[in-house]
Design a protein around this nucleic acid. Structure first.
Length: 916
RNA sequence: CCUACCGUAGCUCAAGAGUAGAGUGUUCGACUGAUAAUCGAGAGGUUGAGGGUGCGAAUCCUUCCGGUAGGACCA
């Protein structure tokens, strides 16, 4: 027999690892099949039922409804997977975790698309098409969320378009009315002429634009300075000048009056300009002071009237604290119909109100200048500047770069415009809301300041929209009345009528039908507005949490992206404070946006142009949902989340590590039956006890990290454990006994017992993240129910100490010491394998490794993976030298130990062979 | 302009007063009994910059620079 044949024949006598669990994930193929299994066996319901049976406490994460348009992109996927990580980990921590997903269905974005496709539709038809559109995307998104392994009640999600949900929205409105929080008023709102509706603060996005700012002269005609000087205002919106009714100055600022000369034009004028800005004014307009300047206190100017530059009326000088000396002239153009500060100032000073602009943004007759009527305001800046120039009222102009609000849908600039709108009085709610904010846990902590800031300063909430695809504003105008009857009882009746039929009734029937149904006099008209969609989603704590028996309010957790501080968190808070005087949540967690690798915002269109996929489907179809889930777990959700395919791929490698670690454990357990073969802690060897101690730490760390939603820490801890402790050490060191010991030797069984515990613990700890892979491994381990029904492992008390860990630390020290010498020897070709090394350690007398070596001779040898070692006394530092061993290599186990002269095998292998 | 958070190896991130560590990538090597796997080694960091307090600072304080987000201004 040749040596080679020897080796071959002995291979058959080994217990090599064996498993059907595939090394390659093939996730794209396997996950859908597993998913089908989960759904056909009602896994979600089973988990809930199991926790219920165990009388588990509830943990409620209330799902924020994504908008039902568009595919699921990485940002949405991040949000849903984070939620699922929370739910799966809470469930494994022993809670009952009902998860009712929802969708936000009404609103401008959908109506916009529908209307764009075909114009001139009846409202009822717009609504039919909008609903079809929403439902189509709900299905698309639901499919994606399920594919990502997110478990929940997908067959019964909440939809804000559901009749019973709509009815609850109207009931919330009725409650607001009852509490006297709703009023109608004509004051300036942010108006999108592109979408022809008022907008809420959260529907506005800012863009940098270049405008022309102008300086305009208003000659004083009454007061101390009548005929003697002109006020000069500065504005970036010349189109608001026709609505000018006042000029505001700061009461405590000092203004200078005197002669200003424009040298080039040869013009001399008498102006009143705030002291601090005279220089800037000169630089921008060319008008420099050319004589003595008289100081005037702002407050003394009040009440004077100035001539409007091109209209036959005067503009009153008023006082206002908001005037600054940053830009302009210290005199602020006031158009009460076109700005909120302006509006308030106008109210306080009885200026009246002008808003000569229609829904489309065109001037109405009221504008007072014939050639402007019908002109669009944003095409009127130049004509107005020309008019001003013609009247010699234009003092100067400059280009001005600033951020200007735009409609989030139509992308057109927003104008402030006054039309009758409905509002919620925020002042009545503010104090309670602010108090509640401090009772809520905000994660990360600075979320508290963010929402506190917005609630503190937000103006009254404009809740009416001049749109069709939404819940109608349930308000009526009695015959002959200008003002609406805002009536809670009527609203409740509307709610009851729509409970089954839905609010389509509002659009399908006419005023007469409704008047009759509600017992109102003939000639009653309905309000044609719809409610702001933030009322829809903000009412979910009533329409969902109060309605579902398994949920309850306040929820334990709301979890959305940071933009919801202004959006859903706030609308929910306000409505909840109005309805129940308390916040609807105990904890609010926010995550950052998914941004491009170079930290630029991912807009879908820009990413597509650059050929960078951002659709979740692209990634789960190419890499698998578990890779995506692992990526989510590895990410720092508190800040912006940089994303790109390269970054994404980095998590594929750790995935393989997890998978292979589970696989080798499984493979080493192929002939192990815990019920029959497990041994007690006393039988375990040093490395077994060490890995059990490590496992206890890992369990504690992971469970604490899950508790704190620090998934990345779970990821790091487990990755480290698999890569370093298991793969590089434990599995490597125990190979010899696993493969070469007699199958049921105590030593081998002890290690199998350990591996069994490690496997079961590891697979459970990773299950919330690798939802599919963990379940697959669990199945291969012989379980016929899902891993997701399990709970997290408990640390084992027997291994709570650190005795084994301390011993292993010493051995690791020696191993590192030996490694250096071995590497040198291998390099100089003294021998090739570390197993051929004989190591001579030189240790000081008090070296802590000495007792370890003395107490665990054979195990130390195994751990060091060398042929033999000796210890000699060292005077200085510990060291190691190495030479080739004089032992023969056992052909069966390939270790270099003393071998039998007759069989050529080492003692252990000899025993195994002769007894088999 | 104000406020908050952040800035550590090519990349993604750990350590939160006591010799800067992982993963990934990269280079080299071993094994062929975890094999489209596994093991070992190397290279790679004056921890954004400067100053301060400590015996000692990535860590605490301060100024600046850069990034991001809110807010202010504007509307």
């Amino acid at each position: 027999m040749s040596d080679q044949d020897d080796a071959k024949s002995y291979k058959a006598t080994l217990n090599l690892p064996e498993t059907e669990f595939p090394m390659r994930g093939d996730l794209v193929k396997r996950e859908p099949a597993r998913l089908e299994g989960w759904e056909s066996s009602d896994l979600y319901e089973k988990i809930i039922a199991k926790r219920k049976a165990a009388d588990a406490p509830c943990y409620v994460l209330h799902d924020g409804p994504p908008f039902a348009n568009g595919d699921v992109h990485m940002g949405t996927a991040l949000n849903k997977v984070l939620k699922d990580l929370v739910m799966k980990s809470k469930s494994m921590a022993g809670y009952e975790c009902p998860y009712i997903p929802g969708w936000d269905c009404h609103g401008l974005p959908i109506e916009f698309k529908v209307v764009k496709e075909s114009k001139g539709l009846e409202p009822a038809e717009i609504r039919r098409r909008s609903e079809a559109f929403a439902r189509e995307y709900i299905d698309i998104q639901r499919k994606s969320f399920r594919r990502l392994g997110v478990l929940g009640d997908w067959e019964n999600p909440y939809l804000t378009l559901a009749p019973e949900y709509e009815a609850d929205i109207i009931r919330v409105f009725a409650t607001l009315v009852e509490k006297g929080l709703v009023y109608q008023s004509k004051k300036p709102v942010q108006w999108s002429y592109g979408a022809q509706t008022a907008l809420a603060e959260a529907e506005v996005e800012y863009e940098d634009v270049k405008d022309i700012a102008i300086y305009v002269k208003f000659p004083l005609v009454t007061g101390d300075h009548a005929g003697d000087a002109s006020m000069v205002i500065w504005t970036t919106t010349p189109w608001t000048l026709p609505a000018n009714l006042g000029i505001a100055v700061h009461p405590r600022f000092t203004y200078l009056k005197g002669e200003f000369t424009h040298a080039e034009k040869g013009l001399t004028e008498r102006f009143i300009i705030v002291k601090e800005l005279v220089e800037t004014f000169g630089a921008k307009t060319g008008f420099l002071p050319s004589g003595e300047l008289e100081e005037i206190k702002g407050e003394t100017l009040a009440g004077a009237e100035a001539q409007h530059p091109f209209l036959d009326r005067t503009s009153k000088v008023i006082l206002a604290e908001f005037v600054t000396t940053e830009t302009g002239t210290g005199a602020v153009h006031i158009a009460p119909g076109h700005g909120s500060d302006d509006y308030l100032a106008g109210q306080q000073n009885d200026l009246g109100l002008l808003s000569p602009v229609d829904d489309l943004g065109n001037y109405t007759d009221e504008v007072g200048v014939p050639e402007l009527i019908g002109q669009h305001v944003h095409e009127s800046n130049i004509p107005i500047i020309k008019i001003l120039a013609g009247k010699e009222a234009l003092v100067g102009k400059e280009k001005y770069l600033h951020s200007y609000p735009h409609c989030w849908r139509s992308k057109t600039p927003i104008i402030f415009r006054s039309v009758p709108q409905f509002f919620i009085r925020i002042d009545e709610l503010r104090e309670t809301a602010l108090g509640e904010i401090d009772r809520v846990d905000w994660l990360p902590h600075w979320g508290r300041n963010r929402i506190h800031g917005t609630v503190e300063s937000r103006p009254d909430w404009c809740i009416s929209r001049q749109r069709t695809w939404g819940v109608p504003l349930p308000v009526f105008y009695m015959p002959g009345e200008e003002l609406p009857d805002i009536n809670a009882d009527l609203a409740r009746k509307v709610a009851d009528l729509t409970e089954s039929g839905g609010t389509n009734l509002w659009f399908e029937h006419d005023d007469a039908w409704w008047a009759e149904k509600l017992g109102l006099p003939e000639g009653t008209r309905r309000c044609t507005d719809t409610l702001d969609v933030w009322i829809d989603s903000g009412s979910s704590h009533v329409a969902v949490m109060d309605r579902h028996p398994e949920l309850s309010c306040p929820a334990d957790l709301y979890l959305e992206a940071t933009d919801q501080h202004r959006g859903w968190f706030q609308s929910s808070l306000m409505l909840s404070v109005a309805v129940r005087d308390a916040a609807p949540y105990k904890t609010v967690m926010t995550h950052g946006f998914v941004v491009d690798q170079d930290k630029k915002k991912i807009s879908k269109s820009a990413a597509q142009k650059a050929g960078k996929p951002v659709d979740a489907a692209y990634f789960y179809n190419k890499y698998g949902a578990d890779i995506l889930r692992l990526w989510v777990s590895s990410v720092d959700w508190q800040n912006e989340v940089p994303f790109g395919e390269d970054l994404f791929k980095q998590t594929a490698e750790p995935y393989r590590r997890f998978r292979n670690t589970l696989r080798i454990l499984l493979a080493n357990l192929h002939d192990f039956d815990a019920a029959k073969d497990a041994v007690g802690p006393d039988e375990m060897t040093l490395v077994d006890r060490w890995i059990m101690e490590r496992l206890n730490e890992v369990i504690a760390e992971c469970e604490a990290a899950y508790e704190a939603f620090e998934f990345r820490k779970v990821f790091n801890t487990l990755n480290q454990f698999c890569a370093v402790d298991l793969s590089a050490f434990y599995v490597d060191i125990t190979k010899d006994r696993m493969y070469c010991d007699a199958p049921d030797s105590v030593r081998r069984r002890a290690t199998q017992t350990t591996m069994h515990v490690v496997f079961e613990s590891l697979v459970k700890l990773i299950a919330p993240i690798l939802a599919f892979t963990a379940d697959e491994a669990w199945e291969y381990a012989g379980h016929d129910t899902s891993i997701h029904l399990e709970t997290f492992p408990e640390p084992r008390e027997a291994f709570n100490g650190s005795a084994a860990t301390e011993a292993i630390e010493q051995l690791t020290r020696l191993r590192d010491l030996a490694q250096v010498a071995i590497d040198a020897a291998v390099k100089s070709e003294a021998f090739k394998k570390r197993e051929r090394a004989a190591v001579q350690f030189a240790l000081p007398a008090d070296d802590p490794a000495r007792p370890v070596l003395a107490n665990s001779g054979e195990e130390a040898l195994e751990f060091l993976m060398v042929s033999k070692f000796m210890v000699e006394d060292a005077t200085g530092e510990a060291g190691a030298s190495v030479m080739v061993t004089d032992e023969e290599e056992c052909p069966r186990c390939r270790r270099s130990l003393s071998v039998s002269a007759t069989t050529g095998l080492c003692d252990r292998c000899d025993d195994v062979m002769s007894s088999s």
